[in-house]
């Protein structure tokens, strides 16, 4: 049954319809978890004994940083599948994730900077963690630029998949940068093997926000994929029938 599912999901038309049904579910569950996360993060969680209220930026900064890495890994894996098996749909997943991945990377950098100013006394420092995250942003932008530069979308997808694969080495560098180098950025307090060094009252809103951003990514990547499918399959009969139906 699973094999059939993936086989069917490989056809753009089937994916287009299934994605259309899934997007509202992703969007609603995203909004619910977002409201919970923000409410607990802003109102219920206590202030930090050192940083006071400013640490609340964490509820945006950390989930978006996690997302920036998670989305890039999804792109690299889909890129690998696209290169090896030349599946059209995984190519579409790669490019559909690029913009939202770049946005989360930018958000992580911007909110980190807004947090760094009061806590570190500077907007930016060439710290291993910050610099590798900035490189990640350039990788995302490179992927978007490369895709739009090449006319033939199948060729563009191959080039983008290769770039995504080459850049994936940067992800462990970002994650372990705080261990390998003596960074100003703090080491991991959650993504590590032993117990997270964060009180449960702060951890719950943080994990809720992380789940919320993943649901958001689910909705947005499917919406983007549907747009890409319409553009790529513009000459196919089912798209033209759909357009005529909507025109009536």
């Amino acid at each position: 049954m699973i094999i059939r599912f993936f086989h069917q999901m490989g056809s753009p038309r089937y994916f287009y319809n299934v994605a259309g049904k899934l997007v509202p579910w992703f969007m609603v569950s995203f909004l619910i978890t977002l409201v919970f996360g923000l409410y607990y993060g802003l109102f219920v969680a206590p202030p930090d004994y050192q940083q006071g209220e400013s640490y609340r930026i964490m509820y945006i900064h950390v989930p978006s940083a996690w997302m920036s890495m998670f989305i890039y890994v999804v792109m690299a894996v889909s890129g690998l599948i696209s290169l090896v098996w030349r599946i059209k749909m995984t190519e579409i997943v790669v490019i559909s994730s690029a913009a939202v991945g770049a946005s989360f990377t930018f958000l992580a950098l911007a909110t980190g900077s807004l947090w760094g100013k009061p806590m570190w006394g500077t907007w930016w420092v060439w710290d291993a963690r910050l610099t590798s995250e900035l490189i990640l942003l350039f990788l995302y932008l490179g992927i978007i630029a490369l895709h739009s530069a090449i006319e033939d979308k199948r060729v563009a997808a191959r080039a983008v998949s290769i770039l995504a694969l080459v850049g994936v080495v940067n992800i462990p560098i970002i994650h372990y940068s705080v261990e390998w180098w003596n960074t100003l950025h703090q080491p991991a307090s959650v993504t590590k093997f032993d117990k997270p060094s964060m009180d449960i009252s702060m951890l719950i809103p943080l994990l809720t926000m992380a789940i919320s951003f993943k649901l958001y990514y689910g909705a947005v990547v499917l919406m983007r994929a549907r747009a890409e499918i319409v553009e790529r399959e513009r000459n196919s009969r089912w798209v033209q029938e759909m357009v005529e139906q909507e025109a009536k």
Binding site: R56, I57, S64, L114
Partner: peptide, 10 residues
């Protein structure tokens, strides 16, 4: 001035 811009930007 640091917290709200972060949430607005998000």
């Amino acid at each position: 001035v640091y917290v709200w811009p972060s949430f607005i930007l998000a």
